[in-house]
Design a protein around this nucleic acid. Structure first.
Lengths: 138, 138
DNA sequence: ATATGTGCAAACTGTTTGCAGCCGC
DNA sequence: GCGGCTGCAAACAGTTTGCACATAT
C-alpha cells in the first residue's frame, strides 16, 4: 500500500517520491529477495525512465534508515528484503529460490562471544529445496 | 608445514607448485580470513613476481578441491580460511577483525526446511568485539 | 616434448559517484 | 526559487579470462 509506505518514509525522515514509493511497493509485494538489477528490470516496464543509479541510491537510503534489510547470500550481489524480522535464509543451488525460515539461536550460550555486542545476525544455508531434492531422488 | 601441504595437495589431485605451497602455508599461518588481495600483498614481499591471477586461480582451485573454505561476510569481497570445520564468524564493525566461534544449531528443528538437503551452513554476526565494546563503554 | 602453471593485461560485473537538469513544495 | 531527487555516463573494485611464456617432469 503506497499510502502506508508514504507515512513510513515520513516517519523515518525520507522524502517521499514517486520512484521511492514504487520501489518500496515492489519489495513489499515481491518477497523473493531481489537484487537491484531485478528490481530495475521489473519496474522499467512501467517506468521506462527509471535509472540504475536511482534504484541503488534509493535502496541504500532505505537500508540506512532501517526500512529494508540487505542480504549477503552470494558474494557478488546484494539482495534486499522488506521483512525486518530476524530469520534465516536458504538458497537452493538448483532452482535459485531463496526461502525464509525461523530459527531459535541462543547467543548467550556461545562462550567465544561473551562481552561482544551483537548488532546483526546472519544465517543462511545452501542446498536443495524440497522440490528439487525430491526430483533428484527419482 | 610445506611438506604436509604438498602431501595434502597430492591427495586432492592438485599439482604441487611453489606458488601454491606458499599460498597454502600463508593461509595456515594467518588465520585472519584474508582476502585474495591481502594474500597477494603479503606474499609479494617475498615473491615479487607473484601475480593477482595466480592467487585467484590458486584459491579457486583449493576451494573446488575442498582444501579451503570461502567466506561471504562482506558482499564485495571473498575471504578464505584454512579451517574447514563447521563454525560461525563474527566481524567487528569497529576494528574489522573476524572471530571464529563454535555453535550448536539443530537443523532438524526447523519446520520450514523439512525435506531440504542442506549442503552448506553459513552463520555470521556483526557488532563490536569485546575489546572495542569495552572501550566504547568507558 | 608435453602438459600445465604463471603472469600480464584486458574484460566483466555489480556498485558508486559527479554532475546537470528537473520536480515539487 | 530552493533543496534535493533523478538519470546519464564515467569511475571503481574485486574477480575472471585469454594468451604467450616459463617450468617441471
Amino acid at each position: 500500500m503506497s499510502k502506508q509506505h508514504a507515512e513510513l518514509m515520513e516517519q523515518k525522515g525520507i522524502k517521499v517520491s514517486h520512484q521511492r514509493l514504487r520501489i518500496l511497493d515492489y519489495l513489499e509485494k515481491n518477497r523473493v529477495h531481489p537484487t537491484a538489477d531485478m528490481i530495475l528490470n521489473d519496474l522499467k516496464d512501467e517506468m521506462p525512465s527509471l535509472s540504475k543509479s536511482t534504484v541503488y541510491k534509493t535502496l541504500n537510503t532505505f537500508v540506512e534508515k532501517g526500512v529494508l534489510r540487505e542480504l549477503t547470500i552470494e558474494e557478488n550481489e546484494i539482495r534486499y528484503e522488506y521483512n525486518l524480522q530476524d530469520h534465516g535464509h536458504f538458497k537452493c543451488i538448483e532452482c535459485g529460490k531463496v526461502f525464509d525460515f525461523e530459527y531459535r539461536f541462543d547467543v548467550d550460550d556461545i562462550k567465544e562471544l561473551k562481552g561482544f555486542r551483537i548488532d546483526d545476525k546472519n544465517i543462511y544455508f545452501k542446498g536443495l529445496c524440497r522440490d528439487c531434492n525430491s526430483s533428484k531422488v527419482m
